[in-house]
Design a protein around this nucleic acid. Structure first.
Lengths: 337, 337
DNA sequence: CTGAAAGCGCTAACAT
DNA sequence: ATGTTAGCGCTTTCAG
């Protein structure tokens, strides 16, 4: 029947009204008389009309899409945030321009580009590695940070990273550990620094030693966790417990040391951060800090849509709670030698 | 300086040419005289002009976005394909409308909706569960399947699922296993059926028994792998090896049986499918079939862009090779009792 | 090789 | 409550 896609004109003609009325019926039905409204809706149904988003966007001076800037779309951590974003953005008819800072050379330059390109109605930033300077510009489109960000006043959705780290340390201390090490994310990343800071201050508050050679730098990946495992194995004086800044690293770490015959938690206790899906399926299950990642995405998207709707470039910030989850990977330290 | 975003008019004025010339310079530089071209480019640089994609799209009767229909964006398997898609689509200035069939009620109805809505220039389908009937419509926008799909002639990018399953069985048989079980994906899913078929035919080709009670239904998730683990533990007459239709399930399976004291591969050999990141980090490492997921995404996107560019709704199909990866989770069967 | 001009389909003043 | 109308910013014939 409908060889060609119907336009608003077709509907107007078919309903015997003007295009303006059709448009109104679809956007603000309340201002249209009931009879007219029904006629229009019938015509819409008959013609199979769908508003042309492009035309609508052009007229309304918006783009209908938001840019998501993230370090690695294939990382399950981010993809789950993405799922949250998508669950809000898609129903609101916003497309997602996903920009992976991992590809292409200069991430900060690209951030600048996106900020000024007018290609999107808003930007959600998930990459905590980009430097704060990159956001100095009077942000034209609203920006929401869905990650920690050093000293920025931009609206954001973040989790209690510092408290999470403190929970991990507290848990290990209560089990009797006094020698606790830490595997960080990449230096410069805000998550890394915040969790490290939480780790540090918890240690000092508990009067526990903080040894630099027990701090191993990682990059959140499983591979780097495995490297940390090798580093730990090679240590003369080993910490009896480790807090790792991501579950991925904890997974890599456990796999590595287990393959070398080390028993978790008998020989070493392991605590991660994130509670990714696999954590409960490892053997032993991984003690960790749960971050509600989907919810982070949902809130960030909602925040951004609010800002877009109200035409503002500032907005509230929000902190989402973390939750401590005990599983088998943490236990009392090995009996003193 | 540039309080407002410059339009093509501003550039034209600044360069002393018409808007048509500016447009040409940017799209088909070769047809513009060198001097003019340079003047225009200078003006572009000065004004900081960026083409308004919305206006361009409206005029050119395209939308500038493609719909990605997938079952679960948070699944690392899909997110990696997504990464591949994004790496092609984003540079080509296409936005991704991500539609998660997991949310919302009727996935097939939504597929219909997307096909007819004219909201996108193309559609990439990653959900092998939707029924073929849903694609009967003379596809208006080009569609590319990045998954197996029963009996559809639509262009697609798929992997050698059947051969992959056969490789797994062959490997286990060569190790000496004669009692091989299988954990499937959800019934009805094409991946499930294809791999099951590969499993079946490999067994019969090798003259090995195929027992229905050794076929456990899963759904690709770690949780369902753990359930399969419980089912295996409860069996009277256990297979000595299992081929699981996804690494996620294999991970859940191994975690479950290991927590019950079972040794892999001494007590049971495990082979997965996918080679997700974690597979090499498990203890023991997981023997599996590698699928190049990023590449699937890349090729699917390229295929779709070609079809869009050429205005066709059909195109070639492509099969991407799988690769067998041996790790520690598979070994000879336990010594005969 | 370049310019003039006609819209793409829609929405939002403004007018009735 | 509804219709008229003027564009949003761009690309693309069609003339020159």
């Amino acid at each position: 029947m409908d060889r060609k896609i119907a336009t608003i004109q077709d509907v107007a003609r078919s309903a015997g009204v003007s295009t303006a009325t059709v448009s109104r019926t679809l956007s603000k039905p309340s201002v249209v008389a009931k009879a007219t409204r029904e006629a229009v809706l019938t015509a819409v149904a008959e013609t199979g009309y769908r508003v042309n988003a492009t035309a609508s966007n052009l007229r309304r001076q918006r783009t209908g899409s938001v840019i998501i800037l993230l370090p690695n779309i294939a990382n399950p951590f981010f993809s789950q945030i993405l799922a949250g974003l998508s669950s809000v953005l898609t129903p609101a008819q916003y497309g997602m321009l996903i920009a992976d800072t991992q590809f292409g050379p200069d991430p900060e330059e690209r951030l600048q580009h996106y900020l000024t390109s007018g290609q999107a109605d808003g930007l959600i930033l998930l990459d905590g590695t980009l430097s704060p300077e990159a956001l100095r510009t009077p942000a034209r489109p609203p920006v929401v940070l869905a990650c920690e960000w050093m000293g920025s006043a931009l609206p954001s959705v973040r989790v209690e990273n510092q408290r999470g780290a403190a929970l991990a340390v507290g848990h290990l201390a209560k089990l009797g550990h006094r020698h606790i090490g830490h595997v960080t994310g990449p230096r410069g990343n805000v998550l890394t620094e915040t969790r490290l800071e939480g780790f540090r201050s918890a240690l000092s508050q508990l009067g526990l030693p903080m040894r630099d050679d027990w701090i191993i730098e990682g990059d959140f990946s499983m591979d780097s966790g495995a490297s940390a495992g090798r580093a730990w194995l090679a240590m003369q004086d080993k910490p009896t417990a480790l807090f790792l800044s991501s579950d991925e690293m904890a997974t890599g770490f456990m796999g590595q040391v287990q393959r070398r015959g080390v028993q978790v938690p008998q020989d070493v206790s392991v605590v991660g951060f994130d509670n990714i899906e696999i954590s409960q399926h490892l053997s032993p299950g991984l003690t960790t800090i749960r971050q509600p990642r989907t919810q982070i995405g949902v809130r960030a998207a909602e925040l951004l849509l609010d800002m877009i709707a109200e035409g503002r470039i500032d907005g509230p910030s929000e902190v989402i709670e973390v939750e401590f989850i005990t599983r088998g990977s943490s236990g009392p330290p090995p009996a003193a030698k």
